[in-house]
């Protein structure tokens, strides 16, 4: 029992350490930031927070942008992944199998290596500086994991249920809407949360596709704060922005921890 508690404390320190250090830094005055662990003098301040929140455009704007990107990407991914997963989960055809292999191969291609070329795509189709356009690469990048999780969940459902629904006269859309999707809700919600967090956090594509400062997403905005001075990184303001930006994610993870784990179990990844 004792040993378990010690292990848990070590685990929490390791997981939270860097974030705690950010919080510590964010409340330290600029003089004391370069003298950590020293307590004398003008130690604590909330100036960094005031600075971040009073900037133009206001900080909540970045939260809003990231939120929009996260929601649209999640929605688009589920819209495409659910029908595709339904087919893959229920069919043994060569077509479905080759699609699965295609997805796995795609997921092996390191996505950061894609963004140079994707920038050309964005330019050719006029997708730059459009928050909604970001959901196109984000959905595609999330597709392999989403299809993997959702098709396993569809596969786990007994065939009888869908057949009973067919006999009852439900067409494909109605079967999905009234019978199948409600039954795989755990897998859908955990997939949705994973996609949302990925889209919220994505950096290289967001950096290159969006240049207008009132449209940039949260990670890009924080990185901009860090890069705003060429001489030294303004760590105080940067840490304050990190802490503020982390709050929604902390809430999501705390609220949905159970759904994330149980959804992965339902869509148990099989071979």
């Amino acid at each position: 029992m004792k040993r378990q508690n010690i292990l848990i404390i070590i685990l929490l320190l390791w997981s939270l350490g860097p974030l705690l250090w950010q919080i510590y830094t964010s409340f330290s005055t600029t003089e004391s930031i370069i003298r950590p662990f020293e307590t004398e003098g003008n130690r604590w301040t909330i100036d960094h927070y005031i600075q971040v929140l009073n900037a133009d455009p206001p900080f909540w704007r970045y939260l809003f942008n990231s939120f929009i990107v996260g929601i649209t990407s999640t929605f688009l991914t589920l819209l495409l992944a659910i029908p595709a997963s339904y087919v893959i989960g229920n069919s043994n055809s060569k077509f479905a199998k080759s699609f699965k292999i295609l997805l796995l191969t795609a997921s092996l291609f390191p996505y950061v290596l894609l963004f140079l070329s994707l920038l050309e795509v964005a330019r050719d189709f006029g997708l730059g500086n459009n928050l909604f356009a970001l959901c196109i690469p984000y959905s595609a990048l999330s597709m392999p994991l989403a299809v993997l999780l959702l098709s396993a969940a569809f596969k786990d459902l007994p065939n009888d249920l869908e057949e009973a629904a067919r006999i009852e006269g439900l067409n494909l859309w109605q079967r999905l809407r009234y019978v199948l999707m409600p039954l795989i809700t755990p897998a859908i919600s955990s997939t949705a949360i994973i996609i949302f967090i990925f889209s919220w956090n994505e950096y290289p594509i967001a950096l290159t596709w969006i240049t207008k400062s009132n449209l940039i997403t949260l990670p890009v905005a924080i990185a901009r704060i860090a890069g705003s001075s060429i001489y030294s990184v303004p760590y105080g303001a940067y840490a304050a922005a990190t802490v503020l930006g982390a709050i929604p994610l902390i809430l999501i993870v705390l609220l949905f921890q159970r759904q994330i784990v149980s959804g992965l179990t339902q869509g148990a990844i099989k071979g």
Binding site: P158, D160, L161, E163, A164, Y178, P182, L183
Partner: peptide
Amino acid sequence: FQSYALFPH
């Protein structure tokens, strides 16, 4: 159906 196939939800 043999399993009755009632919709569990």
